[in-house]
Write a protein that binds this DNA or RNA. Structure first.
Length: 751
DNA sequence: GACCTGCTGCGGGCTG
């Protein structure tokens, strides 16, 4: 077919855009507007709140910005910023600034970027002459409100709209609560009933929840635009590996294993898996998701060594949050602009919208933690016309042997992988968690609001933050408890003036004057790892490391020269040995639906075309064990000197159940998808469950005493025991479910 | 059994 320069654009959307914007689209030689843009343009031009959802790189930014710039062009040119564009990452702001600069220039609309790396001078100029579009992080916006409370009206009164990029990254998080609260504070300060909000989001299981996250309490009025998300199809495989290759390793007693190879084997990468990864990935452009920073380092190191052994240049590079910006950018730029084959071995750092172009395939070690992240990862490949998304999941299970723990015989990693793929094929993914009380962030917002206003009455604060704002789950009584707690002699975060206004207290000043006041998420202090003058990344303070030790980091091997505890710097030099780095972290959560699906995979007969021979063998042996033990109708197994409870429920319910056993003095361990109870009589367990089923469950306080680490969010350490209990019960456990879960387990156990 | 994110304002000293 002859190529044509004729634009194939539906007149309705395109022709409604401003003249300079249409001209700019012409110069870009776009053949047509994308599906999501066609749909979003009329909705955004009409005004009101809109969620625009589509996969990464489907043109969501333009879908919002083109009609918004049209609205600005048609406006009366008032002073003040006209579009506020909030983004979760500095890197995304820099990407967007590059992309939007020519467009804004063509429209003669100023464009500002505003985050911690932007010069104070540029920010001060934008502040004194506010106009056009400003790209900003939530934390910089918070700083602006806190330090320049009196200028808010001048800066933001003429806003056409607020755009929230990567809305899904904010939903259900402390940072998302902060952003909602900030936007509400701006609306109130500017005397605006509502400033239009446009949320840009990945496709979620339930877009209604995304709409409510965009406008808390007003989600029903939000227009939801979903882009046509059909890709080029999906090629998928799950591959199984045994942790020790018995055929080559079992009887080689007189053969000396090279120490390095032995080390790698100890680190849990089976030979056959390493060989397959190398064979599938080398020579192409891929992402390999390792699951943790430690595993990312191990796999990147192993694959780099294999390149050395095969005398080919290395093309495997690690990418995670503890690596320095420079180290990460090298990998991103190589993926985006360099024709050489490259595999980034990454954690979730490469799931968000950072521009790395299209990759040929995505690989993953183990099942991962959620279907929604699986979906995000898939979207990184198969974007070029005609090429499908390619995903390989590599699952490691224990080699079958005598005396094996029953849970190991169920090959739950493989079963979970299949369950997650099945959920993905059903079109399901985890909906955002319903909003909790978020008292840590409410405490932060109260301090911020006092600073912004220079003092405020308790009633006015509750109205702004809880009644009209996003902390709707907090009633007046709880708010009063929080105020008393903040004012207590232990905390001294706030005090009350003779006129009754809330003011910042003695210790509150220390917190609010520090430059790290603006973020609401918790971060631990870390050492910097330095080689010559280059910072490789950061290392947790609590992972003791001494000079002389060796370390794998940034995909290479190092010897520690010096640990300086005052400047918190670790200096290193290259070496050959190396042990994997240790990072700390919080456990994750698995959704109920995946646990239920796992049970169905085990009790079913279905054969899955996308699993390889070894994985099929593992599934068949797992199903055999499941049937042999009668697990379809039994949830409690005698095991060792106690019992094993296998209830097939998600992490929150499982943790709650485990805490209930602990409260009844069982020796309790939560392990994989089960609870192990030691030194007890299985019949006693059943009797206990039966009592709970009748409603005699342990009290909330009894459960709380077993919570190992109640403080999770940044300001939790300032909360009273009662408030902390409330947060834990509403956000981290599922106390309400306990009776029902016990009833389900007890009734089948008895039949 | 995990991952990720962010950061003001001011004053002093120096350079062109």
């Amino acid at each position: 077919m002859a190529t044509t320069r004729t634009m194939n654009l539906q007149p309705s959307a395109f022709e409604r855009l401003g003249q300079p914007i249409r001209r700019w689209i012409w110069t870009q030689k776009w053949q047509r507007l994308r599906d999501v843009q066609e749909k979003a343009i009329p909705a955004v031009l009409a005004g009101g709140d809109v969620v625009v959802s589509a996969r990464t790189a489907a043109g969501k930014t333009e879908a919002a910005i083109l009609p918004l710039l049209t609205r600005v062009l048609g406006g009366d040119g008032r002073d003040g910023f006209r579009i506020l564009y909030v983004s979760p990452l500095k890197a995304l702001i820099n990407d967007q600034y590059r992309r939007l600069e020519p467009l804004c220039e063509a429209c003669d609309i100023p464009l500002h970027k505003w985050h911690g790396d932007v010069s104070a001078d540029a920010k001060s100029r934008a502040r004194k002459n506010p106009s056009g579009v400003v790209l900003i992080t939530p934390e910089s916006l918070e700083a602006l409100l806190v330090r320049r409370g009196k200028e808010i009206r001048f800066l933001f009164s003429s806003l056409e709209a607020v755009v929230i990029d990567e809305l899904h990254a904010f939903i259900g998080t402390e940072r998302g609560m902060q952003l909602q609260s900030i936007l509400n504070r701006i609306e109130i300060e500017c005397g605006r009933e509502r400033i239009d909000r446009i949320g840009l989001s990945a496709t979620l299981g339930d877009m209604g929840l995304a709409a409510d996250a965009l406008r808390p309490g007003g989600g029903a009025k939000v227009a939801v635009i979903e882009g046509n998300d059909e890709g080029n199809g999906l090629r998928l495989q799950i591959r199984g590996y045994y942790d020790k290759d018995s055929t080559t390793k079992a009887d080689d007693g007189d053969v000396e294993t090279p120490p390095e190879e032995e080390a790698a084997e100890r680190h849990g990468i089976p030979e056959r898996l390493a060989d397959d990864l190398f064979r599938f990935l080398r020579g192409h452009r891929n992402l390999l998701f390792g699951g943790s920073r430690e595993r990312v380092e191990l796999y990147a190191d192993r694959l780099r060594l294999m390149c050395e052994e095969n005398r080919v240049p290395n093309e495997f590079f690690p990418h995670h949050g503890s690596l320095s910006k420079a180290e990460r950018e090298d990998v991103e730029i190589r993926l985006r602009d360099d024709p050489r084959p490259t595999t980034a071995v990454a954690t979730t750092t490469l799931e968000l919208g950072i521009d790395i172009g299209d990759v040929e395939s995505v690989a993953q070690i183990g099942p991962g933690f959620s279907v929604s992240s699986l979906r995000q990862r898939l979207g990184r490949s198969g974007r070029r016309a005609g090429s499908p998304a390619v995903m390989r999941m590599f699952v490691i299970e224990r080699n079958p042997g005598r005396g094996q723990h029953p849970l190991e015989r169920l090959n739950l990693g493989l079963v979970q992988s299949i369950a997650m793929i099945e959920c993905l094929k059903d079109g399901w993914c985890e909906p955002p968690e319903p909003t909790g009380v978020h008292l840590s962030t409410l405490l932060h917002q109260l301090l911020a609001l006092i600073l912004q206003k220079g003092g405020i009455s308790p009633q006015a604060a509750w109205k702004i933050l809880c009644d009209r704002g996003p902390f709707k789950a907090v009633d007046r009584a709880t708010f009063a408890d929080l105020l008393r707690c903040m004012a207590s002699t232990d905390n001294k975060l706030i005090e009350q003036s003779p006129e009754g206004l809330l003011m910042i207290g003695e210790f509150g000043e220390r917190i609010t004057e520090a430059h790290d006041f603006y973020p609401v998420f918790f971060t631990e202090r870390e050492y910097r790892i330095m080689h010559d003058a280059r910072t490789l990344g950061t290392y947790p303070l609590d992972s003791a490391i001494k000079s002389g030790e060796t370390l794998i980091f940034a995909g290479r091997r190092w010897q520690v020269l010096e640990v300086d505890d005052t400047t918190r710097v670790i200096t290193v030099k290259p070496t050959r040995g190396g042990k994997p780095p240790r990072f700390s972290g919080n456990g994750g959560g698995l959704h109920d639906r995946i646990a239920e699906k796992m049970k169905r995979v085990l009790e079913g007969k279905e054969q899955y075309a996308y699993i390889d021979r070894v994985a099929a063998e593992m599934l068949s042996s797992a199903r055999h064990c499941f049937e042999e033990r009668g697990l379809a109708s039994r949830f409690i197994l005698p095991h060792a000197d106690g019992a094993l409870v296998l209830p097939w429920i998600g992490t929150r319910k499982l943790t709650t159940l485990a805490l209930a056993f602990l409260a009844r003095d069982f020796r309790t361990a939560q392990y994989q998808h089960s609870i192990e109870l030691q030194d007890c009589d299985p019949e006693g367990v059943e009797q206990c469950l039966a009592r709970w089923a009748e409603g005699n469950v342990p009290t909330i306080d009894a459960l709380m005493t077993g919570v190992a680490r109640p403080n999770v969010a940044r300001f939790d350490n300032h909360l009273s025991w009662d408030l902390m209990t409330m947060v834990t019960i509403k956000e981290r456990l599922d106390y309400e479910s306990l009776q029902g879960v016990a009833a389900g387990l007890a009734s089948v156990g008895r039949s």
